[in-house]
């Protein structure tokens, strides 16, 4: 593929060729991702509908399949209302601050062996840094809207994101102890063997903590008190309409798919099949990655349909007083097992 591209563009100077090749790869990641995000919203409405014993949207297009397109067109046509006395520049850049990190993290996600845009050695650290940036979109949006509800919602949302990031970071440290490398490809390759070699087994508490922290970071139910309609009327993005709101929406769903992909990479073997035998190896690794990520993403939707919303002080209590001690304890346990018990060599 690469040679073909370089042959095709041989009339360009070399640096430009490399840049064009990278841009092609970026589009090859972003375009399907945007499509996935759009249809994830559709999947959410249909699945939650079926869980509530009703059919989701089924009018637009054949059985409702054009619903996300209709939503996108509608949002494009709606007026972007900038409230009076709001800070115009910050109001319009806040959605970018939300979307930028959500998309940029996909640069280091390996979809299959070798199918990664940038195979850097500090991949996991880079992703953690980018998820920390996610709090800025929320804060700037809330402040720039010049509205009490928006600002209060933004502060609470930011405090919640920040609390659960610690739990996520500690869970990632556990993964690193077992994997021995920050490179995401190495983390997946360290799980090769069979389903029992995947890291969900030695790191089960950390898997649970990471997923719960991921749901809380993306402000999804049951942790969506900062943007639940009945609580604070959409919180930090109450003043947003039209495409600016759509960008926040995109960022939230892209983050959800990102967390699902990371859970799969770190705990469920990435693109590896459950067993390296005949019927499982017929499916290409890229499809295995897709199937696993879809299953984990389905959990996000299932949580939303099933659990009642947590109260804000319950959310903070969970993040600080429950998840952090569990992860710290498990890190100590992992270290002790690695050095002082015979099974330590099993996952060293």
């Amino acid at each position: 593929m690469r040679e073909y591209f370089f042959w095709l563009t041989a009339w360009l100077p070399h640096n430009l060729q490399v840049t064009m090749w990278v841009l092609t790869k970026i589009v090859a990641i972003l375009a399907p991702l945007m499509l996935c995000v759009a249809y994830f919203t559709f999947a959410e409405r249909k699945l939650i509908g079926y869980m509530q014993i009703r059919v989701g949207p089924n009018r637009v297009g054949p059985r409702g399949w054009l619903q996300p397109i209709a939503d996108a067109l509608k949002l494009m046509m709606k007026e972007i209302i900038i409230p009076s006395r709001a800070n115009r520049f910050l109001f319009l850049t806040a959605p970018l601050l939300s979307l930028g990190p959500a998309l940029a993290a996909w640069a280091v996600i390996p979809f299959s062996d070798g199918l990664v845009l940038a195979d850097i050695d500090a991949g996991l650290l880079y992703i953690l840094a980018l998820t920390s940036m996610g709090v800025y979109g929320v804060l700037v949006a809330g402040w720039a809207s010049n509205s009490k509800y928006a600002f209060l919602g933004a502060m609470r949302c930011a405090a919640q994101i920040v609390a659960y990031e610690i739990a996520m970071g500690f869970a990632l440290v556990g993964v690193l102890m077992v994997a021995g490398s920050l490179n995401l490809r190495d983390i997946v390759l360290g799980q090769s063997g069979s389903m029992l070699h995947w890291y969900w087994l030695p790191l089960l508490p950390l898997l649970v903590v990471y997923f719960i922290a991921g749901v809380a970071e993306t402000n999804r139910a049951p942790f969506d008190v900062a943007e639940g309609e009945s609580e604070i009327v959409a919180g930090f993005h109450v003043e947003y309409s039209g495409m600016a709101f759509a960008v926040f929406f995109l960022a939230e769903y892209a983050n959800m798919i990102l967390i699902a992909a990371l859970t799969v990479l770190m705990f469920f073997g990435g693109w590896l099949p459950p067993l390296e035998v005949a019927p499982f190896t017929w499916l290409p690794p890229l499809m295995w990655f897709g199937v696993k990520t879809s299953l984990v993403a389905f959990l996000f939707l299932w949580f939303r349909a099933t659990f009642p919303r947590y109260r804000y002080d319950q959310i903070m209590r969970l993040g600080w007083k429950v998840l952090i001690p569990i992860t710290l304890l498990w890190i100590v346990v992992l270290g002790m097992v690695k050095f002082y018990t015979p099974i330590g060599v099993w996952f060293a």
Binding site: L125, Y126, L128, A129, S132, M133, E165
Partner: peptide, 9 residues
């Protein structure tokens, strides 16, 4: 990356 993580984050 730690500069971004700690200072900016």
């Amino acid at each position: 990356i730690v500069l971004v993580l700690v200072y900016v984050g």
